[in-house]
Nucleic acid binder design. Structure first.
Length: 883
DNA sequence: GGCTGGTGGGTTTTT
DNA sequence: CCCACCAGCC
């Protein structure tokens, strides 16, 4: 065999000079010098993983269950292809969904083949970032210029609103947001204006849906912009209309790898199919002849028609496409993901090898047993059963707890966290960083935040509006965008009067009209208006300054370093001064964020490169420096793992969510169940599930019953914690499952006392113990402790918010505050009003869940009742009876 | 331009 | 019930 020192395939161009082998190559050499054994990187893989790595030819589907080493397989496979010199780095297309996944993949491949060699993999990235790359190369084929801007959702909505108004439609009756959603759905399905279903087209804007879609695309073209959907949609159309371009990529990409295949939507599927479908040498003409060309034919087609014919055109050619995914973790159906893509893989790619990874390296046997049993209730799945060799008798079963209401649930979980945090026999303490609370809906988070603030327990909330979505950041970016692309009217409109320059609606309308009339961008229109006498002196002077500013900055774009330019823009525009003069509480933070924005530009070569990064990588920097419990939604927990996981809110209506059931039917329920599965499989060692008997929804107290998922857990792996009277009011509504043996009615725990039995009990004992917890004591001690920028002081302890910031509407800012709400579960407010009703104020009544109480106030059919035990609650009068 | 009161909506989110 | 959003006002 030839040596490794020559022709190492780690370079972008086949004729580049090779460098000395490093990383994996060096290690592989070392391994081979001694014996003929497999290269090092293959060692330690289990047989299935190894098969997935070594089956490089032909279509391969790797069904990778949770925690089975999916990323390892993907990265090793790439290293293997390179190492065996089957392809150059530039000949591998590797697609992920999120930037995070792409980053992780890059990093891990770097560990295998050497970081410098990963740089030679230009086609490793998200669907969208690869889409941009393709589109920049062939922009003119989509009617764009290469320097096009990528609009974010906010821009899109504003643009659509303008179009709706321009059509003379009532933008109240036909909300731009709704149409943006529809557009997104269409593009997710790869449907152009002429391909959408007639019914869909008619359902919006008095039947003007199709017209609006067309107008929107035309507008984008004049703005030299595209939206996120276009990043997939344009390449698809380009490939279909230009077989020669497609052929170029067929030649280029020898291997295609796709991560999280179960999350692909129809457009992504089409995109992949176009790239994967190689013309057969000698039969290429016929193969191409079969390919439909909707885009150039330009005729209407029923929804999905083009997709179907493409599917029918499957060739028997070997396609080196490897898709990795888990049908059981498909949780994004509601935003267009098609589980069917993965379920159909072997039909789409005949002769596909399907490899199952079922050996789990993450969780205990109890957790896996519970998860497997639960997911087995789904019908539409490949069917996998995770297993582990791990068999530690000390492993806890999955704990199921009941609580009275969400406040008690939060208190109880706080108590369990405190219990875990106490040093064990060996003196080890469970770190908060290794614990997470995963909720179905974000409103659930508040109870935990309230409770943890009271306890002084550090937590971090993950998700929500992000850094680049903050008001000041978006403003600053708008300035940059206009400088980089003078045709970016949306950005121009955003900041033309920022800081306030007296340019009101009338002037902006005039700029708009002039731009339309002259068919030029608004910036240009503004410049010419400023030189005309059509405006009053004041706005004219203001516009003249704006125009002069942008011209100056644009000239500087080529000459001065982009960071310097950015600073200049913010200074000269008066934007920084605007916040310096602002006396509000957020102003200093905003200035700080602007500085951070400038700092983050350093990594990029140019202003344009930076803007592209921002458009595609809208995410917040993760700071894991402090020890804190994570609170996040189940959706954002996908792909993560924690030592200990808490899953609150397992009640019918919340989880599975009522809307998923109403709107999604059986498949909706199955997606909810997959979400539950995702939740369960996040846990490595400890797993606690909670449900409450009463939950406040839209301000009213509702009785709830435990989620059917609770009953789908296998009894053998579950430990039902019983303490207190929380679950005492009713029997088990379901047969079978964890509650099948008729426990649940507040009886004795047949399993004997467990560590968590008293947690969650609403009795005086656990309540008073609260004050002895480490968290409480820490809260006392921490009251005066200083904190840094990311860690605001709230009630004297540290709260980190990852990804939460202020948006235009202040959503994020509002959520961080705790304004005079109840402390420790006791509501204190009292109000008395007299309204005629079947009941009278002062009446003694009985409520099935809350017991006896006196009516404090009546508002129509809503009663405010002071319950003897449960405190004051608002309930519907139908739920109580007089006593 | 900034405040106020009325109204509607309230699951999950990446790019 | 709580909140975001918008129209209408000063």
């Amino acid at each position: 065999m030839s040596g490794f020192s020559e022709d190492m395939p780690f370079f972008d161009e086949p004729n580049a000079r090779p460098a000395a082998p490093s990383g994996i190559a060096a290690r592989a050499m070392a391994a081979r010098s001694g014996q003929n054994s497999a290269p090092d990187y293959l060692k330690g893989l289990n047989p299935e993983q190894r098969l997935a790595v070594e089956t490089t030819e032909g279509p391969v589907l790797v069904l990778a269950g949770a925690g089975t080493g999916k990323t390892r397989v993907l990265t090793t496979r790439i290293a293997h292809i390179l190492n065996t010199r089957k392809a150059w780095p530039s000949e591998i297309l590797a697609v992920t969904f999120t930037n995070k996944a792409a980053r992780e993949m890059k990093q891990r491949i770097g560990l295998l083949i050497g970081e410098e060699n990963v740089e030679g993999m230009p086609w490793l990235g998200t669907f969208h970032s690869i889409g941009v790359k393709l589109l920049r190369r062939h922009a003119e084929l989509a009617g764009l210029k290469s320097g096009f801007t990528i609009l974010d959702t906010d821009d899109v909505v504003r643009l659509i609103k303008q179009l709706i108004q321009a059509e003379g439609l009532d933008d109240k009756r036909w909300p731009a947001k709704t149409f943006a959603q529809m557009l997104d759905n269409w593009k997710n399905k790869g449907l152009g204006p002429d391909e959408i279903a007639e019914g869909d087209a008619r359902s919006f804007g008095n039947g003007k849906g199709r017209q609006l879609y067309k107008a929107y695309q035309e507008r984008l073209q004049t703005l030299n912009s595209c939206d996120f959907g276009d990043l997939l949609y344009h390449p698809i159309r380009i490939f279909r209309a230009n077989p020669d371009v497609l052929k170029e990529y067929h030649r280029k990409f020898k291997y295609i790898l796709v991560d999280e295949y179960q999350d692909t939507n129809t457009a992504q599927y089409m995109w992949l199919r176009l790239l994967a479908q190689r013309p057969n040498v000698g039969r290429s003409a016929s193969a191409e002849g079969r390919k439909p060309d909707r885009a150039s034919a330009g005729q209407a087609a029923p929804a999905g028609a083009s997709e179907r014919s493409e599917r029918a055109a499957v060739s028997e050619n070997k396609v080196n496409i490897c898709c990795v995914g888990d049908d059981d973790q498909s949780i994004y159906g509601w935003r267009g993901a098609e589980v069917d893509n993965i379920l159909r893989f072997d039909k789409d790619f005949p002769g596909a090898t399907i490899i199952r990874l079922e050996r789990n390296y993450r969780s205990t046997a109890h957790i896996l047993g519970a998860a497997s049993h639960l997911i087995a209730h789904n019908e539409g799945r490949f069917g996998k059963t995770l297993f582990t060799d791990r068999n530690d008798p000390d492993d806890d079963k999955v704990h199921v707890h009941a609580a009275w209401d969400s406040e008690e649930e939060a208190r109880a979980i706080g108590d369990v966290i405190e219990a875990y945090q106490r040093p064990d026999r060996q003196g080890n303490r469970h770190k908060l960083n290794d614990m997470a609370i995963l909720v179905r809906a974000s409103f659930q988070m508040r109870a935990f935040e309230d409770r943890f603030i009271t306890l002084g327990l550090n937590y971090r909330v993950i998700g929500g509006p992000r850094f680049y979505e903050r008001l000041e950041i978006r403003d600053a970016l708008a300035f940059f965008r206009v400088v980089a692309n003078g045709g970016d009217d949306l950005a121009f409109e955003r900041i033309v009067n920022t800081p306030k320059r007296g340019l009101g609606e009338a002037t902006i309308r005039q700029i708009h009209d002039t731009a339309r009339a002259l068919r030029v961008p608004m910036l240009e229109a503004a410049a010419s208006l400023a030189e005309s006498d059509e405006l009053k002196p004041k706005p004219r002077a203001a516009l003249r300054e704006v125009a002069a500013n942008f011209e100056r900055w644009r000239n500087a774009l080529e000459t001065s370093p982009h960071i310097e330019l950015a600073e200049t823009i913010l200074e000269e525009s008066g934007y920084t001064d605007m916040w310096k003069n602002d006396r509000s509480a957020e102003a200093p933070g905003r200035l700080e964020n602007l500085k951070e924005l400038i700092r983050s530009m350093e990594e990029y070569e140019s202003l344009r490169a930076f803007l592209e990064h921002v458009a595609l990588v809208m995410e917040a920097e993760q700071g894991e420096s402090q020890d804190a419990v994570s609170i996040m939604t189940l959706h954002s927990a996908k792909g993560l793992e924690f030592e200990t996981v808490f899953l609150p809110g397992w009640e019918e209506g919340l989880f599975p969510h009522q809307r998923a059931l109403d709107e999604g039917g059986r498949s909706g329920l199955e997606e909810e169940r997959r979400l539950a599965y995702v939740g369960l499989t996040r846990a490595k060692k400890n797993l606690h599930i909670w449900f409450v008997s009463n939950r406040q929804i839209h301000g009213l107290w509702q009785s709830t019953i435990p989620s059917r998922f609770v009953n789908e857990l296998p009894e053998t792996h579950v430990d039902v914690a019983e303490g207190g009277n929380s679950y005492g009011g009713y029997g088990n509504p379901y047969g079978g499952g964890a509650f099948a043996s008729g426990r649940g009615g507040g009886r004795q725990n047949p399993y004997g006392a467990s560590r968590f039995d008293n947690i969650g009990a609403k009795d005086q004992g656990s309540f008073s113990n609260t004050y002895a917890t480490p968290g409480w004591q820490r809260a006392q001690a921490n009251r005066t402790e200083a904190t840094d920028r990311n860690w605001g002081t709230r009630s004297g302890h540290q709260v980190e918010r990852i990804g939460y910031g202020e948006t235009d509407s202040g959503y994020g800012a509002g959520r961080t505050s705790v304004k005079g709400r109840t402390i420790d579960g006791e509501l204190v407010a009292k109000s008395v009003a007299d309204t005629p009703s079947a009941f009278n104020v002062g009446d003694r009544v009985f409520h099935q869940k809350f017991g006896n109480g006196n009516i404090a106030a009546i508002d129509g059919n809503k009663l405010t009742i002071d319950f003897d035990k449960a405190g004051q609650k608002r309930v519907l009068d139908g739920f109580v009876v007089g006593v």
